[in-house]
């Protein structure tokens, strides 16, 4: 595999689908590659740095979802597509913040074409705080195992290696127990 800096959009999307370490590498690369949009869009839309950080993170996750679920047709460059997601999500939040307030920002679009660009509604900060707190309560190793399995898509052998377990069977058992712990907390 060539250096990640030289990966094409297709190779990055393939890495998302493959999951595991290669997905993490691709995500890290995109974050570093697109981070310069953050201050620009924040300035343009009037979001605070904290708000822009949330929206940017959400946009990265949306990009991964949409490219792996084939919603992304490849008609534009991945960077352009990401910028659109990030920008529209920012505008969404800006409008939400300024509901019933008079807005003189002429450059903001009148309406967001959400039909042509499927964007999942951003989770509110409150939701996120509540949900990820459950994972914080099941211990660091369990949290990492569940993240590796449920979000990053590592296979059981890789999870075992990363968590210092003996093999995939032990990793499966551990994951099962971790899930049970989590479910007890949620109930």
């Amino acid at each position: 595999m060539p250096k990640i800096e030289t990966w094409s959009d297709d190779e990055i999307i393939e890495a998302f689908s493959t999951g595991g370490a290669i997905k993490e590498q691709a995500v890290d690369h995109l974050i570093n590659d697109f981070i310069h949009y953050l201050p620009k869009v924040a300035k343009k839309t009037g979001l605070s740095q904290d708000e822009a950080l949330d929206v940017f993170t959400d946009a990265i996750m949306a990009l991964i979802d949409q490219t792996t679920s084939a919603q992304f047709k490849g008609a534009s460059k991945l960077s352009t597509y990401f910028y659109k997601i990030f920008y529209f999500k920012s505008v969404d939040l800006f409008r939400k913040n300024t509901t019933n307030q008079i807005d003189y920002r002429e450059e903001l679009p009148e309406a967001i074409d959400s039909e042509s660009l499927p964007i999942k509604k951003m989770e509110t900060n409150e939701d996120i705080n509540q949900l990820h707190q459950y994972l914080d309560q099941i211990g660091e190793i369990c949290k990492q195992i569940l993240l590796d399995w449920g979000y990053w898509g590592y296979n059981m052998n890789e999870i075992a290696e990363r968590a210092g377990l003996e093999g995939s069977t032990q990793a499966k058992d551990r994951k099962y127990k971790c899930l049970q712990k989590l479910r007890k907390l949620i109930q």
């Binding site: 949330d54 993170t57 996750m61 996120i128 949900l131 990820h132 979000y151 990053w152």
Partner: peptide
């Protein structure tokens, strides 16, 4: 479960960002 894990992943990603 995946929803909860996703929210934790978002926290992890936010730190990276």
């Amino acid at each position: 479960d995946l929803q909860v894990i996703r929210s934790a992943a978002k926290e992890q990603l936010r730190k990276k960002v």
